[in-house]
Simulated scan of single mutants.
Amino acid sequence: MLDDTDRRILRHYQADPEVPLSELAERAGVTGSTLTRRLERLREAGVLRGVRGVIHWPALGYEVEVSLRVTLDKTQPRAFDEFIAAAREVPEVLEIQTFLGQVDVRLSVIARDMPHYQRIYRERLLTLPHIADIEGLMHVARLKAEETLPL
Results as ranks from 00 to 15, higher is better:
T31P: 06
E65P: 00
Y117L: 13
L126A: 04
L125M: 10
D73C: 04
R27Y: 05
Y62M: 08
Y121A: 14
R119K: 07
T98Q: 03
V30C: 10
S22C: 08
R38H: 03
E135N: 07
L24N: 02
K74F: 01
S67N: 09
T148I: 07
T71A: 13
D4W: 14
V66H: 07
A85Y: 06
D3R: 09
L72F: 11
R41L: 09
I120F: 06
E135V: 12
L35H: 04
L125A: 11
V140S: 09
V93C: 11
G101Q: 10
L125G: 05
D81E: 05
V19Q: 11
D73W: 00
L2N: 12
A45N: 08
P150M: 10
K144C: 04
P129Q: 12
T36D: 00
L2E: 13
Q118V: 12
A132P: 03
A87N: 08
I55V: 15
L39A: 09
M1V: 08
G136V: 00
T127V: 14
D3V: 13
P77S: 11
L24V: 02
E82W: 01
A28N: 12
T148S: 12
L10I: 15
A15M: 14
R52G: 11
H56M: 02
L2T: 15
A59I: 08
P129F: 10
A145S: 10
L35D: 03
L39K: 11
G53E: 06
D4R: 14
K144V: 15
E23K: 13
L48F: 00
G29T: 04
V70I: 12
L21M: 14
A141E: 12
L24K: 08
I96D: 07
Y13P: 05
